[in-house]
């Protein structure tokens, strides 16, 4: 099998083929434009997130990768001037349809943020938060323990569940946030540069954790670190930004299997970025 053929086949698989085979795609985002007020922040990006995989978003700063990620669970609704043209399909429903409740969307598509942001509550209450707002009736202790184990934090905190979540170290706080996000059992987990505020050791722990999370959840992760994308992502989406008359507008350049994208990118822009010719 020669290289070009495999690339072509792969591109098919993440592009058209996925559409034919809908069961493979967890979230299918077709974004024509995202506006903040009059400013067009993102254009023409079709981003299918494949089920059971980790999809990495990379690209230079200002390329809209975080904006796209946050539009996948309607977090951008919290910004009053946000407007999107396009549709995002999740479980066969366009989550931007007027009939859809954004609160329900966010309960199924969880999110982990750049800065660890535990609530000013105990570790236990942080993890139980999502279960309580969903009025979980079962064994709360078991669920909390399960979530903390999934986040590889259980052994470190099992003796101090009543302590404040804010007393943990940065890396532990971020894993607590992951536990909090997975506790109510979402289908998809969005991670917005989850390691950018952490030191290398804590980063490594989270990366290892992500391979386990993949067993249970579909994951999309924004990272500014190409090595990280190579280490964790199955599929990688490369975004870039074009600057015309002072306006910056981000867009998807290409998307493919991670090793293919890094070894043999289709686009010249991708090649330059990977070689570190711009950032």
């Amino acid at each position: 099998m020669n290289m070009n053929a495999s690339v072509a086949r792969l591109n098919d698989s993440v592009g058209d083929e996925t559409q034919r085979n809908e069961a493979e795609v967890a979230i299918d985002a077709k974004i024509n434009s995202i506006y903040y007020g009059k400013f067009r922040a993102v254009r023409d990006s079709h981003v299918p997130i494949r089920k059971g995989e980790i999809t990495g978003f990379i690209g230079p700063s200002g390329c809209g990768k975080s904006t796209v990620l946050r539009s996948l669970n309607r977090m951008n609704d919290l910004i009053p001037i946000f407007k999107m043209d396009g549709d995002v399909h999740f479980m066969g429903q366009d989550i931007y349809a007027p009939s859809i409740d954004p609160v329900l969307v966010r309960r199924h598509i969880g999110m982990v943020f750049q800065q660890p942001n535990p609530f000013a509550m105990s570790i236990y209450d942080n993890v139980a938060f999502g279960l309580r707002i969903n009025r979980f009736k079962g064994d709360m202790d078991e669920r909390v323990e399960g979530a903390l184990r999934q986040a590889a934090l259980w052994d470190e905190v099992k003796d101090k569940l009543k302590q404040s979540g804010l007393a943990l170290s940065g890396g532990q706080q971020q894993r607590l946030c992951i536990a909090r996000a997975v506790a109510p059992g979402p289908t998809v987990l969005l991670m917005d540069e989850p390691c950018s505020a952490l030191d290398p050791i804590a980063t490594r722990k989270i990366e290892n954790l992500m391979h386990d999370l993949k067993e249970h959840y579909t994951v999309a992760i924004v990272t500014h670190n190409m090595q990280q994308a190579q280490r964790v992502a199955d599929t990688t989406a490369f975004f870039s930004v074009d600057i015309s008359d002072g306006q910056r507008c981000g867009h998807l350049v290409e998307m493919g299997r991670t090793n293919e994208l890094f070894e043999n990118p289709r686009e010249e822009l991708t090649r330059k970025y990977i070689r570190g010719e711009f950032s």
């Binding site: 059971g52 429903q93 409740d101 329900l104 969307v105 399960g146 289908t187 249970h216 959840y217 579909t218």
Partner: peptide, 25 residues
């Protein structure tokens, strides 16, 4: 850990607004 194998989840949730849902109300 039951109920956490979300990839095998076949049940499709309806994400539409439920005006008579307790939380919404």
């Amino acid at each position: 850990m039951a109920g956490m194998q979300n990839l095998e989840q076949t049940q499709v949730f309806n994400l539409a607004r439920k005006p008579y849902n307790r939380d919404t109300l």
